[in-house]
């Protein structure tokens, strides 16, 4: 008699991801799906896809999804949640979408304490458009629009979204996680699940920033990209919980 240790979640359909080989965005999809299933709310879920590599995520989830304009996913999610407070509404957004063009929308969704869950994929670059500099691109990191590498003098220092949002009262759950090794993935799953729990308990806005890889635009093998997350990203973007809803009293 065998027991299943791991199999694909029913929250994902059989459509194959368009993501490049080894891109950890796929892992994040799995964690969202597994969390929804384990919380028993897959049937209540309404996702909001953004623009960037996550734009096509509506193809993969076994739940209803609305595709939003660039950066506007938190506004679209607000519209959905205000109409259907009984549903579980989440956004999946990359760093170009959330930290750059959608900075206003994410700040104000947090500010209103909008009861939505945001999964923020930070891979420090614009993936879909081909490797341009993001607000989260590290100092010295090369991008197609920072060919000599990002400098503080020219572009400022990378934006720390989790820390920024944790200063906002309406953000009731804020955590930064990574998916660069199995232990990190397990922690990321716990955080994502808790971010949904925050919504289910009606506490307020919840966000999980997930450090992710972009092997293609970083110019690395997928395995080396995991190493770069650990050696370069985590020192600047420290992992951990910044706000938990039981503490926010």
């Amino acid at each position: 008699m065998s027991t299943i240790v791991y199999k694909k979640t029913k929250a994902l359909n059989d459509t194959q991801f368009h993501y490049c080989p080894g891109c950890t965005h796929g892992i994040i999809h799995k964690l969202i799906g597994e969390s929804l299933v384990e919380l028993g709310v897959l049937g209540e879920a309404i996702g909001v896809a953004s623009v960037g590599c996550s734009a096509l995520c509506y193809k993969y989830f076994n739940c209803d999804v609305q595709q939003a304009a660039h950066g506007r996913a938190p506004a679209v999610a607000t519209g959905i949640k205000r109409v259907r407070p009984e549903n579980v509404v989440f956004t999946l957004q990359g760093d170009g979408d959330l930290a750059s063009i959608g900075a206003a929308e994410i700040v104000h969704a947090a500010h209103r304490g909008e009861k939505i869950t945001t999964i923020f994929v930070n891979n420090a670059i614009y993936g879909m458009t081909g490797g341009q500099m993001a607000p989260t691109t590290l100092i010295g990191q090369k991008a197609t629009t920072a060919p000599e590498g990002r400098t503080e003098e020219h572009s400022g220092k990378p934006l720390k979204i989790a820390e920024m949002l944790a200063t906002i009262d309406g953000a009731k759950y804020v955590e930064r996680v990574s998916v660069h090794n199995p232990a990190a993935v397990r922690k990321a799953k716990k955080a994502i699940k808790r971010a949904f729990q925050c919504q289910l308990e009606g506490k307020g806005f919840a966000i999980v920033e997930v450090l992710s890889t972009c092997p293609t635009n970083w110019g690395m093998t997928p395995v080396n990209a995991l190493g770069w997350v650990e050696s370069d990203m985590i020192p600047y973007y420290p992992l951990g919980n910044l706000r938990d809803f039981e503490e926010a009293k």
């Binding site: 909001v48 679209v76 929308e105």
Partner: peptide, 26 residues
């Protein structure tokens, strides 16, 4: 019903998108 003052017109129309997509008269 729900009235919500958005952070901008850009956000407001995208809230309309979400609400309309959720089946509301908005």
């Amino acid at each position: 019903g729900v009235f919500l003052q958005a952070e901008s017109e850009v956000a407001a129309i995208n809230m309309v998108y979400g609400a309309a997509g959720a089946g509301a008269r908005v």
